[in-house]
Simulated assay, not measured.
Amino acid sequence: MESFGAFLKSRRDQVTPAAIGLRTFGTARRVPGLRREELAQLAGVSVGYYTRLEQGHAETASEQVLDALARVLRLDPVETVHLHNLARQPARPGLSEPPPEEPHPRVLALLRALADATPAIVLGRRGDVLAWNRAGHALVAEHLPFDAPWEPAGRPSVPRMFFLDPLTRDLHRNWDELARVHVAYLRLTAGRFPTDARLAELIGELTMRSDAFATMWAAGEVADCTVGAMRLRHPTVGAVNVTYQVWLQPESPDHRLEFYTPDDQGSADALRLLAHQSRALEGSQPSSDLSLRGPQP
Rank of each mutant, 00 (worst) to 15 (best):
L83K: 02
L69I: 12
L95W: 00
R160I: 07
W175Q: 13
E205K: 01
V107W: 04
E37I: 09
S46T: 13
A219K: 05
F213D: 09
T27A: 15
T261W: 02
A184E: 03
R231S: 09
L292P: 00
H143W: 15
P105I: 02
R272H: 13
P90W: 00
R155G: 02
P297E: 05
L111K: 06
E37K: 08
D147T: 07
A138S: 09
F146A: 12
H82F: 15
S291G: 15
P250D: 13
M161L: 15
L139M: 05
T118D: 02
P100F: 03
P262E: 00
F163V: 04
A18I: 02
P90E: 12
D147Q: 10
F259V: 05
P295K: 00
W247S: 15
R35D: 09
N133G: 02
R256V: 08
L39H: 08
R256N: 10
A218W: 03
L171D: 05
V237P: 06
R134G: 11
E2G: 01
T51Q: 14
F163W: 05
P286I: 10
R125P: 09
G154K: 01
E59H: 11
L257N: 05
H143K: 00
L108D: 03
M1E: 07
W175G: 03
L232E: 04
D224M: 07
Q14H: 06
V181D: 11
N133W: 02
D176S: 14
A197F: 04
V242F: 05
E59Y: 02
G294A: 05
P253E: 10
E151G: 04
V183Q: 03
Y49A: 04
A153N: 07
M230I: 06
R173H: 08
T51S: 14
H143N: 11
R71D: 11
S157L: 08
A58F: 03
G228D: 02
P166Y: 07
R52H: 09
E37G: 12
A115E: 13
C225V: 00
Q64Y: 08
T168Y: 12
P286M: 03
R106M: 15
A28N: 10
P166W: 04
H82G: 06
A91Q: 14
P105K: 07
S267H: 08
D76A: 12
L206I: 01
T118P: 00
P156W: 13
L83D: 05
W132K: 06
R23N: 14
F25Q: 10
R106D: 14
T243L: 15
P194T: 10
R52V: 01
E102Y: 10
R71F: 06
Y260F: 15
M1W: 12
P156M: 06
D196T: 06
L139S: 05
V237L: 11
P149D: 11
V237E: 14
L271E: 12
V81I: 11
Q64M: 07
P17Q: 07
P250M: 12
N133C: 01
W150N: 13
V183G: 10
A197G: 07
R29G: 04
S10I: 09
E221A: 14
V140C: 07
Q41W: 01
E177D: 15
L188D: 01
A141G: 15
